[in-house]
């Protein structure tokens, strides 16, 4: 719309007009994002929440470390020491204790805030590991699956093992592993890590198989384009969008599963601040001191909701297939060709 005219860019180009040219170029790139965000306020809310949550988590985690180095003593961003017992027993939320305290006088707000970096890192990290491992295996299983070759055998093995893991409800397997390894943060991370990758194999393989037989890939191969180039230019390129969308949605699922292991009492130990552990510890206080349970619960809820809203919107922006359905839903098939094309561009 507001693209720079010739005179703005050429004849009397001042730094300001050049900048405006750049800005409008940037706006061109961002336009689909802006449009979807405007058309879909929920995505915008999710996006803002994700930014706020991630920044807070980063600050809570990093500031003590940096201040330790710079000032010689850690500066905590939490108002109280999350493990510091005080004499303010079982207080209701007030200005002094934003989310109240528990029976030991621990400040709930500090505990919820202290748990944020751990839970978020677990969500991002475990889902990321699953993305890399499962995605890699899925790529192999989908791309080199010619029967009676080494690749074919490897693919078959990968698929069989994946089938076995997919047959477990992942929470049950994670519980079994976590219980076997004993209570602790490390073991429960390992438990989720070991059970989380299989779905990515299936997802990636499905996408690879779909892309592999598209006419343009066949055409590229017929034209003598090397396999490596096909893999990077066509196959990987098409994998990024669906995997990224699934990954974003998955972060929330990992956080929930991890906190569930803590909740049933075989995950994170009670003295570590973790949302699931907190709900478990305060469960019986729901009626008498509801803030103790609802605060960590709300923390999980908001975090997961933020990533779901964002991922849901990301799908509308990135995934061409569902973008088409979005356009179809908004603008019917009766639209003249240009309209549908323009709306998709």
């Amino acid at each position: 719309m507001a693209s720079a005219t010739d005179s703005e860019l050429g004849v009397d180009a001042t730094p300001w007009t050049l900048l405006r040219g750049k800005a409008s170029h940037l706006r061109e790139i961002l336009r689909p994002f802006i449009r979807v965000l405007r058309a879909n306020p929920l995505t915008l809310i999710g996006f803002i929440l994700v930014v706020i949550i991630s920044t807070t988590a980063l600050l809570v985690a990093i500031v003590p470390v940096i201040s330790q180095v710079v000032l010689g003593h850690p500066v905590l961003l939490t108002p109280y020491d999350p493990n510091g017992i005080s004499t303010d027993y079982s207080q209701a939320p007030s200005l002094k204790h934003l989310l109240g305290t528990d029976k030991l006088g621990l400040d709930i707000f500090s505990r919820v805030l202290a748990a944020l970096p751990l839970d978020l890192a677990i969500g991002v990290g475990i889902a990321g590991f699953a993305l890399l491992l499962g995605g890699g295996l899925g790529l192999v299983a989908g791309y080199w699956d010619k029967p009676r070759t080494l690749g074919g055998v490897i693919s078959a093995v990968i698929l069989r093992v994946t089938d076995v893991f997919l047959a477990f409800p992942s929470l049950v397997l994670a519980l079994a592993i976590a219980a076997s390894l004993g209570r602790g943060t490390g073991p429960s991370i390992l438990a989720v890590l070991l059970t989380w990758w299989p779905y990515y194999v299936r997802l990636t393989r499905g996408e690879v198989l779909a892309v592999k037989h598209r006419p343009y890939v066949v055409a590229a191969r017929a034209a003598g384009v090397s396999e490596v180039r096909i893999l990077f230019r066509h196959v990987l390129r098409n994998l990024i969008e669906p995997l990224l969308v699934y990954y974003t949605l998955d972060i929330g699922t990992v956080i929930i599963t991890f906190s569930t292991i803590s909740f049933v009492g075989i995950g994170v130990p009670l003295d570590v601040s973790e949302w699931g552990t907190m709900v478990e510890a305060y469960e019986q206080l729901l009626l008498t001191h509801p803030w103790t349970v609802l605060a960590p619960g709300a923390a999980i809820f908001i975090t997961v909701l933020a990533f779901s809203l964002f991922g849901d919107g990301l799908r509308d922006i990135l995934d061409p297939r569902s973008r088409r359905t979005l356009v179809q839903a908004v603008a019917a098939t009766t639209l003249p060709g240009q309209v549908a094309g323009a709306a998709e561009a």
Binding site: V279, G297, V304
Partner: peptide
Amino acid sequence: LSGWATPTYL
């Protein structure tokens, strides 16, 4: 999405 974001145990 709220249902999805609420942990089963909560």
